[in-house]
Design a protein around this nucleic acid. Structure first.
Lengths: 180, 180
DNA sequence: GGAAATCTACTCGGATACCGCGTGTCCGAGTTATGGTGG
DNA sequence: CCACCATAACTCGGACACGCGGTATCCGAGTAGATTTCC
């Protein structure tokens, strides 16, 4: 099992498509975003509630509701998303083996249990390095890398796809209303 | 669940007590080491087979068998132990979401799937930083930190404990033999 | 024509099911030093 | 006295049970815009 799971991957891919969207257009729904990525929709919806609690996204309720980024993409790091989705979970949890050494007979002396376990300290340092790398990359950075590869019309294709989704929904509503 | 599990912690604590042992004395058995640390003995035995396969420890079979370090403690990094015990497992496994974008209609263009996914790249970089930190710490470093805290008699106490274990075993054998 | 009721899609949160993996235990096979036994 | 044999402890490897947490789905509640209905 990987330490960073599928939830983070889903969230990041969805978030990338919230960048640079026209503020005048309706915000996409979580279902639209999930379907756009080919990702489980109900699972993605759950992820967005966590992203909102962490202040990464903001959502509007109701039939025309949807999600948007709560702040600039350059101010959202990959680490923010990881912590929001999975909670801050350590890479290693120390079981304080050092205090159970048999020569202590169940009563470890102070020198053995004071401070941070040496093994734990190494793991904490490794975790800090990893988190620093994740903190050093923002959503804007990721989007920039994508924009460098994609042709110019890609953004428009995505916008059209999302607009078509909204339109189909609106037409469906109208049709249903007429049928009744 | 932590990315680095209990197995690594058990292995590291046991390995620390293999450093600087008298080469003339019998090597401790995996059970001795495990009991010394208060760690599940049969599980630890399984760990040591992996450590040996990775060339970290060497073991001698038979009734007087046991385990010793296969090379100098300064030449064994924490990363070596992690990889030996858990196998080299990535921090993140990319599901290539990018190719499933709905605007591609199931046939993603080359520009979308070529090279490494941007999100994946960030994770790989973070993983590399973490591994570098683990690779930068050797068993000798850990043992040095421990020695700085422990009183001088601690080493002797451990040696006595292990010697007592061997002696008790030998006496047990002799006694059983006489009883028959 | 305007106000109220209805309908639908959306977000939010909890409950639940499934499944893979880490943890821990058990067992049989092969190996080697030690103590006892028979020539 | 010497060769042989039995015994016990050890490593090695596979099989298996258990529980936790990630993944995924479902459902009910609350909200807001669009449509329909009623005055």
């Amino acid at each position: 099992m990987a330490h960073i799971g599928a939830g983070v991957e889903y969230a990041l891919h969805c978030l990338l498509f919230l960048i640079g969207r026209d503020a005048a257009a309706l915000p996409p729904s979580t279902r639209d975003l999930a379907d756009l990525q080919g990702v489980p929709a109900e699972y993605a919806a759950k992820l967005f509630t966590r992203l909102q609690k962490a202040g990464i996204t903001a959502s509007s309720e109701g039939v025309a509701g949807g999600v948007r980024l709560a702040r600039d993409a350059a101010a959202i790091s990959v680490l923010d998303v990881v912590d929001a989705v999975e909670g801050r979970k350590p890479i290693f949890d120390c079981r304080e083996i050092r205090g159970g050494c048999a020569v202590f007979g169940g009563h470890p002396p102070d020198w053995a249990t004071s401070g941070v376990c040496g093994i734990h300290a190494v793991m904490l340092e490794a975790e800090a390095r990893m988190r620093a790398a994740l903190a050093g990359c923002s959503l804007a950075d990721l989007a920039g890398g994508l924009a460098r590869k994609a042709p110019d019309e890609f953004d428009d294709d995505v916008a059209d796809w999302l607009a078509a989704r909204s339109a189909a929904r609106r037409d469906g509503v109208r049709k249903k209303g007429k049928d009744q």
